[in-house]
């Protein structure tokens, strides 16, 4: 039982985080507007489609936000729970290309559709028909943030991201084993290092494939030129090269030492690369390259512990996979010694 607690803990954490990730509803949101282009200086009737909203007549207030200015809607006709028609006059002189739509209602909270409207005529700011301040409602309950483009896929946060954390943990374990090899030259440490590399590559592959699927659904391509993707690709290449190096040396002691040296060298350079990279290239990922981090629009900070639970849990699972391989390696060494004798 003594050696089992952390395995149970890991499984429990992963289970809890996965159930929460799949079971938590998405927050109500505006998903579609028609028309999507504004003609400044004219009246508009905008059809709005909500997702999981419950529009109640006379309670819905809408605004268009452009460059920090809020334009209130005149009247909102509620058609049903998820459909509404906004009647409003759009003043001339809006500053930015894109406007956000804000719909606020008690219960549902304030919902924002980012870049909802294109504004073909740019000005230097509207001078009338703007609101001094906005009515804000806060949503009650526990939900995933609902962003356009992402929608349901935001649940992947608890599956895709922990893969990378686990990969990095396993690579660090492999680095420690490699340093031990340099100090002791022990066969077991070398086997530990290679087992950790194998496990880290498994998680890297899962991270790459899940990321690719997610990217296809949100960014429209299986692979994009992105700082984080470049970092991941370099990481995978380094550890594949590590395995090739091992494959090309037959003498065991020499193989252990050469592989350990390469591991230490490559790990440090990779670490520098990953730290410096986001500053050099653009990224579509949240929290880098000027994109808002998830946490910035993640109104439910209660979901954050769930994400950390997923990361910790998956690290535990990764450690368990490594643990099994390491123990097997120990048995293999014993068996080989016994056969030699």
């Amino acid at each position: 039982m003594k050696h089992w607690w952390w395995k149970f803990l890991a499984v429990a954490l992963v289970l809890a985080a996965s159930i929460t990730a799949l079971r938590t509803p998405l927050a109500p949101a505006i998903v579609h507007v028609e028309p999507a282009t504004l003609q400044p200086g004219t009246r508009h009737a905008i059809e709005v489609l909500g997702y999981r909203t419950q529009f109640v007549p006379n309670e819905v207030i809408a605004y268009i936000e452009n460059g920090g200015q809020f334009v209130p809607a005149g009247r909102v006709d509620v058609i049903d729970d998820t459909h509404a028609r906004i009647h409003m006059y759009v003043p001339e002189g809006l500053r930015e290309d894109m406007s956000d739509l804000l719909v606020t209602a008690p219960g549902a909270g304030t919902m924002r559709l980012f870049d909802a409207f294109y504004n073909p005529v740019k000005g230097s700011g509207a001078t009338h028909d703007i609101a001094a301040e906005m009515t804000v409602h806060h949503r009650k309950g526990f939900a995933f943030p609902n962003r356009n483009l992402l929608y349901e896929t935001i649940r992947n946060l608890n599956f895709h991201v922990p893969m990378w954390f686990t990969m990095m943990m396993l690579q660090t374990v492999s680095l420690v084993f490699s340093i031990l090899v340099l100090r002791s030259g022990a066969e077991l440490h070398d086997r530990g290092a290679v087992a950790a590399v194998h496990a880290s590559l498994l998680f890297a592959m899962m991270g790459l494939v899940t990321g690719s699927i997610w990217a296809r659904a949100t960014w429209g391509g299986w692979w994009t030129t992105d700082a984080k993707l470049n970092g991941a690709a370099v990481t995978v290449l380094i550890y594949l090269a590590y395995l090739v190096l091992r494959g090309s040396v037959t003498d065991r002691a020499k193989r252990a030492r050469l592989a350990a040296i390469y591991n230490v060298f490559a790990y440090v350079l990779m670490l520098l690369f990953i730290m410096a990279l986001p500053r050099m290239t653009a990224s579509l990922h949240p929290g880098s390259g000027g994109n808002p981090a998830f946490s910035q629009y993640d109104l439910d900070s209660s979901l954050r512990p769930v994400f950390y639970a997923a990361v910790l849990g998956w690290m535990g699972i990764g450690a368990w996979l490594l643990n099994l391989r390491y123990r097997l390696a120990r048995l293999e060494i014993l068996q080989e010694d016994a056969r030699i004798r």
Partner: peptide, 13 residues
């Protein structure tokens, strides 16, 4: 799960 599209992405992941 089925409210809007893209849930298949989560399933695939």
């Amino acid at each position: 799960l089925y409210g809007s599209g893209k849930i298949n992405t989560v399933i695939a992941v």
